[in-house]
Design a protein around this nucleic acid. Sequence first.
DNA 1: ATAGTATTCAACTTATTACTTGAATAGTTT
DNA 2: AAACTATTCAAGTAATAAGTTGAATACTAT
Lengths: 219, 219
Amino acid sequence: MSKSLKNDLFEQFARIGKALSSGKRLQMLEYLAQGERSVDALSRMTGLSVANTSQHLQQLRQAGLASARKDGLYVYYRLSGNGVVRLLAALHAVGEEHLAEVECLVRLYFETKDSLEPVPGRELLQRAKAGVVTVLDVRPREEYAAGHIRGAINVPLGELAKRLHEIPDDKEIVAYCRGPYCLLAFDAVAQLRRKGRKARRLEGGFPEWKSAGLPVESA
Amino acid sequence: MSKSLKNDLFEQFARIGKALSSGKRLQMLEYLAQGERSVDALSRMTGLSVANTSQHLQQLRQAGLASARKDGLYVYYRLSGNGVVRLLAALHAVGEEHLAEVECLVRLYFETKDSLEPVPGRELLQRAKAGVVTVLDVRPREEYAAGHIRGAINVPLGELAKRLHEIPDDKEIVAYCRGPYCLLAFDAVAQLRRKGRKARRLEGGFPEWKSAGLPVESA
DNA sequence: ATAGTATTCAACTTATTACTTGAATAGTTT
DNA sequence: AAACTATTCAAGTAATAAGTTGAATACTAT
């Protein structure tokens, strides 16, 4: 096998690795995993300057992870395919499996590990059909509107305490958010349990659910 | 929710991305995917200085992608788990899907497009039953032992040149490895063709074969 | 012990990358 | 057309990474 050709191939794959080598870019990818976002919106979400955000996004695009669409004054970026979601999931899995620091951080926040036990997607689907669970989307309103699990109700994390009464208290609650390492759902579960509710977290999050072909709807 | 905690989490995942951001390190990972290797061996395979190789390996270890075992004078590195193989596969998948350059290089490597054409599983099964193909497993010995396609012979990629005489030269060879984006079988096909053999690659790899319910056996 | 080998460490140089700033481009609104 | 907005470009600085070199460590064999 030609050495230089193989080298070139690895260098190409390394471009993708480079794109994944910044925490800010991973954060952007996580936001993009929810749906398309303008540069401006991402800049506000990440707290980076607009120019800097734009540059990061271009790196993601050059690595083939994101693509862009211009509509009027805005440029909307999105993930370029489900392969990217799978890549991010694999990254999270390795982090969880092998980086002590990741586990440490998660525990620091949630105290015990078994309280994190997630509900697999297909199990949730069955139990939702049977009407024995309430599916709770704790993401911000816009993200819910852009697409959510069919039948889920939306109570953004910040409003959870105030709007607790809107959630039926006779069923188990399954909360979800942006993905396995988006911490919104963890937080929601912790809050709900503190109020005496029976709550668990969906394994993965909305992007995983969607890319598994499970039923979604948008408002 | 603590913003800094979330940030820290993304920074941890970015450490893995950093490890994947160098072509040399990806090359090392690919070699390690074939089995454990000493620093010295990897240094020779990659053409890097020993000190440099050692430093790269330590980065891989710190990112949780590789781990090391000392035996006498040598330190043997290996991938730290199957999650890493999946991560690399996802990386390859995204590369092939979204980077035009990758497709270009792969074609350049195989010259014509149809020579890339993989053999579908069921076609292989029929032709294997008819006895007109040799099924070649180019994964490391341990993986073959853990389970392989029924009737396949195992010649790990690294031993292919030496053990070419063990492979019948009157039949077409169909090589397979870990999955659609594992590069072992590509490499094997290229090597075999250079030796004048008629060789193709199985579509997918062992996991896909197995989960399709096709016949497997373990040694 | 001594010599020899594999690996790692530490200091250094050079190349990349992150982020900022100010200006340029492209599209919208008045 | 003029004013305004979102985005990108270009140039610069500060931080980080890659690779080299020579020495230190750890183990083996004589």
